[in-house]
């Protein structure tokens, strides 16, 4: 069945399987996501959420199936179209806060030396400083990341990823190690940045309330079938796909075909 309407989706997973030897992690996952959506991914530990992000990042290729970004096959290795923030190790310890954000601008513009000089450098510096101001790190720009608190490091990682203007932003439990107060601040910051940039976000979280609060769409990963003798024989699928926060989605929804909107809304009713 080839449906022409499908080709319009921004990001599309078609019957994705991911297997490591006999271990099936993801089983026939299909999903299409529109530009500017904020997808939160939840599910039991080890069910394949990070695997899903790795596929989307191009760090791994699916065993079966295809992933399309704007109708074209996704590049098979990480590149500047997809930014990522990990739970840890997202920033470079040997660069100051400012240089961490400038690095991407420099790498992008200078393919051979990886550095900018003169006015180009000043310009990159300004861009980086604006980005840092928007995540509230203006006063820490000359520090090395090891001097930053966990929350500051994650803000830096966000700034570093977003300064590249990626089309898709992947977040793997970015706030997992932060305490609740800082987490709430980070939520506000992330939503602001998302609204400003219109980037499509995929965020893995173990905190269901976080998933509900932030997302415009909550994706639940779970195994539909379990063989007690061979727990690895069946993989996880997206068992619930719940639209959320309609008010925030309004701008996005205007751009969607009406039939899809009704389809998404009815699904929400049927699951909640």
């Amino acid at each position: 069945m080839s449906a022409p309407a499908e080709a319009a989706a921004f990001l599309e997973f078609r019957h994705i399987w991911q297997e490591y030897g006999p271990h099936v992690v993801l089983e026939n996952v299909s999903l299409s996501v529109n530009r500017g959506e904020f997808c939160t991914l939840v599910g039991a530990s080890g069910c394949g959420k990070s695997t899903f992000l790795r596929l989307l990042l191009g760090q791994e290729s699916p065993s079966r199936g295809r992933i399309l970004l704007d109708g074209a096959a996704l590049a098979a290795e990480p590149d500047a179209t997809r930014g990522i923030v990990f739970q840890r190790y997202s920033v470079f310890p040997h660069l100051t806060v400012r240089d961490n954000v400038m690095l991407g601008l420099e790498l992008q513009a200078a393919r051979v030396v990886g550095r900018l000089y003169g006015s180009a450098k000043r310009q990159a510096r300004e861009t980086a400083e604006q980005m840092l101001a928007s995540v509230g790190l203006t006063h820490s720009m000359a520090l090395y990341p090891s001097r930053l608190s966990g929350g500051m490091q994650q803000r830096l990682a966000l700034a570093q990823a977003l300064v590249m203007r990626p089309r898709v932003l992947l977040l793997d439990e970015p706030f997992g190690a932060l305490d609740p107060g800082i987490r709430r601040d980070m939520h506000g910051l992330l939503l602001d940045l998302w609204k400003q940039t219109g980037v499509t976000v995929f965020m893995v979280t173990h905190d269901l309330s976080e998933g509900f609060r932030l997302g415009t769409r909550l994706l639940v990963f779970d195994k539909l079938r379990v063989d007690p003798q061979h727990p690895q024989a069946y993989g996880a699928r997206i068992t619930y796909d719940i639209p959320l926060n309609q008010d925030r989605r309004a701008a996005v929804l205007d751009a969607l075909p009406p039939d899809l909107v009704t389809q998404l809304s009815t699904r929400e009713v049927s699951t909640s």
Binding site: L57, F86, P93, L107, Q108, V112
Partner: peptide
């Protein structure tokens, strides 16, 4: 070195050479 850093560098537009000169070598 954490694998994450090499992936991060690639998402920032680094190629093999600049990954080495700007991320691996200095560290």
């Amino acid at each position: 070195m954490p694998r994450e850093l090499l992936i991060k560098a690639q998402t920032l537009g680094a190629n093999t050479w600049t990954t080495i000169t700007r991320v691996v070598l200095p560290q």
